[in-house]
């Protein structure tokens, strides 16, 4: 529509016609005669212009009011309505698209490739078991590399976890390193299992970190006890104090297993059961 008018107006703007000879003079004479009451003097054009300068026309009030009221039939209002309706339609389309995207994101399964795909079922199972067996570590890179080499599924799981599409998901990957997931046993026997780095790091930081939500803060007492285990005589053999500490640790382990693992009626995550056990021993 707009193109149609612009096509007409442009040539019209450039269009011109030459009036017939004497037409301007004749027209001017008629104007003067009409407006100036037949003034034939030489001053007639000047007088006409002066009067024209002083001439004023009161603007019709109705037009302003109608504009202010925004009458339905006014062309300006019609144009506004058209623009407004177009804007609403556009906004509605955008809102539906945004809402659709929200719903899609909320409803979409997290693992699109894994679900109902037997080809990856095994890999998925490995990943799950790797994550859930929680072969934890204190970020000992040597241990991690070794464990990953032994368990390709674990390495794969670590990659899969790192590449997860939903980056908002909690970071829960754990690294291998502790023998049988047993933090205490590994720290007490780190030399036998080649976990020097892990031991040094744990004692230096006074903390064993498995992931963002699982860690153990080592008390000064515990750090001192762990160091005690590795006291040696001058000849390099275990010091008596170290032997005693190791025996004590083994005794604690047995007590713990007897209390929580024998009858299965006690829960270490329960404050009453834990308190009862620890205060008695």
């Amino acid at each position: 529509m707009a193109d149609k008018y612009s096509n007409i107006l442009k040539p019209l703007q450039e269009h011109e016609l030459t009036p017939p000879a004497g037409a301007f003079e004749k027209a001017w004479e008629n104007i003067l005669l009409l407006n100036e009451g037949r003034d034939h003097s030489e001053e007639a054009p000047k007088n006409a212009f002066e009067k024209l300068q002083a001439f004023s026309i009161q603007a019709p009030e109705l037009d302003f009011r109608s504009l202010l009221r925004g009458e339905k039939n006014s062309p300006a209002k019609k144009q506004t309505i058209v623009i407004s309706q177009n804007f609403k339609r556009l906004a509605a389309v955008l809102a539906l698209a945004v809402t659709g995207a929200f719903i899609y994101m909320a409803a979409m399964p997290d693992d699109k490739n894994g679900v109902n795909n037997e080809q990856y079922a095994g890999a998925r199972m490995n990943k799950e078991s790797a994550v859930n067996l929680m072969i934890d570590s204190a970020q000992d890179t040597t241990a991690l590399a070794g464990a990953a080499a032994q368990q390709p599924a674990l390495a794969k799981a670590a990659t899969a976890t790192g590449n997860t599409k939903n980056e908002k998901k909690q970071h829960y990957s754990e690294q291998a390193g502790f023998y049988n997931n047993d933090l205490f046993f590994t720290l007490v026997n780190y030399k036998e299992y080649g976990k020097e780095k892990l031991f040094t790091k744990a004692l230096k930081e006074k903390r064993v970190t498995l992931n963002q939500f699982s860690y153990v803060n080592l008390s000064d007492k515990m750090v001192a006890m762990l160091q005690e285990v590795y006291l040696t005589k001058k000849n390099g053999n275990m010091a008596r104090k170290a032997k005693r500490a190791k025996r004590k640790f083994e005794k604690w382990k047995k007590k713990d297993e007897k209390y929580f693992d024998k009858e299965l009626d006690k829960n270490p995550a329960d404050i009453i059961d834990l308190s009862e056990f620890l205060m008695k021993n």
């Binding site: 934890d136 205490f184 008390s219 270490p268």
Partner: peptide, 30 residues
């Protein structure tokens, strides 16, 4: 023996119709 549990964590995960409580200490993980 209390030092083997001291400093540990008990983490509660809740999502939809599933939950998990995980206890991590020097002595045991459960």
């Amino acid at each position: 023996l209390e030092e083997t549990y001291n400093g540990g964590t008990r983490t509660v995960f809740i999502a939809g119709n599933k939950a998990r409580i995980r206890m991590v200490s020097l002595m045991r993980m459960e």
